[in-house]
Simulated scan of single mutants.
Amino acid sequence: MTSNAAAPTRIVDGVELPAAGAWKIDPGHAEVGFMGRHFMLTKVRGRFTGVDATVYIGERPEDSKVTAEIDMASVDSGDKTRDDHLRSGDFFDVESHPKGVFTSTAVSWNGKAGKLTGDLTIKGVTRSVTLDVDYLGYARDPWNNDRTVFSARGKINREDWGLTWNMALETGGILVSKEIELSLEIEAIREV
């Protein structure tokens, strides 16, 4: 393994990865999204626009850590009525629980891909979540900021966090799926 503190990337086991240190998520270039099914058929997507997170890249990739705080009221699914319902006590209860928090507990890494496991707290309930992560690359923006880009995905059962509101359908099944797919597209700026 080689490392150059001034360089924004380094070679680890023959693979170019971001330099060790803190990388702050750029909320204007981050997509923290989710997808559930309505009537068990239609995909309904949403995202959180208020995210404050830092990726701490370790000298050894498996020593990396992620901390994130999510403004739960920033949920945006493209429909005001649905978003207001998601903010209500039936789902996120943002009056009593305005923030969601993610803190990583373990990272495994192989080349440009890995698994990130951490504790996700929503509505006062904390459960473990594992995401599949891909490192997509590095770029320097026109303002001389070093940026690194990651993509992540995973699945959760929303009921594990007490998000149990639902309605039975006459034809069988339920209105809102229990399984939720998580999808993250993250740009992070190197802190110096």
Rank of each mutant, 00 (worst) to 15 (best):
V32N: 02
F34H: 10
K65F: 00
V51Y: 00
A53D: 02
G36A: 14
D71F: 00
I57S: 00
M40A: 13
M72N: 09
A53I: 03
G33R: 09
T67S: 12
A53N: 04
I57G: 00
K65Y: 01
K65R: 15
P27T: 09
R60G: 04
G28L: 14
E31D: 13
S74G: 10
M72K: 10
E69G: 08
V66Q: 02
E62S: 11
T42W: 08
H38R: 12
K65W: 02
R45A: 10
A73H: 12
A53L: 03
G28E: 12
G33P: 10
I25G: 06
V32M: 04
T54E: 03
D63V: 07
E69L: 12
I57D: 00
R45P: 06
E69W: 06
G28N: 15
V44R: 08
T54L: 03
F48L: 01
V44N: 10
I25R: 02
F48A: 00
D71W: 02
K43E: 13
G28H: 12
V55A: 05
T54W: 05
I25L: 15
S74P: 14
A68P: 07
G28S: 14
M40H: 07
T49A: 06
R37A: 08
R45I: 11
V44K: 10
K43I: 07
R37Q: 15
D63Q: 11
V66M: 02
D71Q: 08
G28Y: 11
S74K: 00
S64E: 00
M72S: 10
D26F: 03
E62K: 08
D71G: 04
D52S: 10
G58D: 00
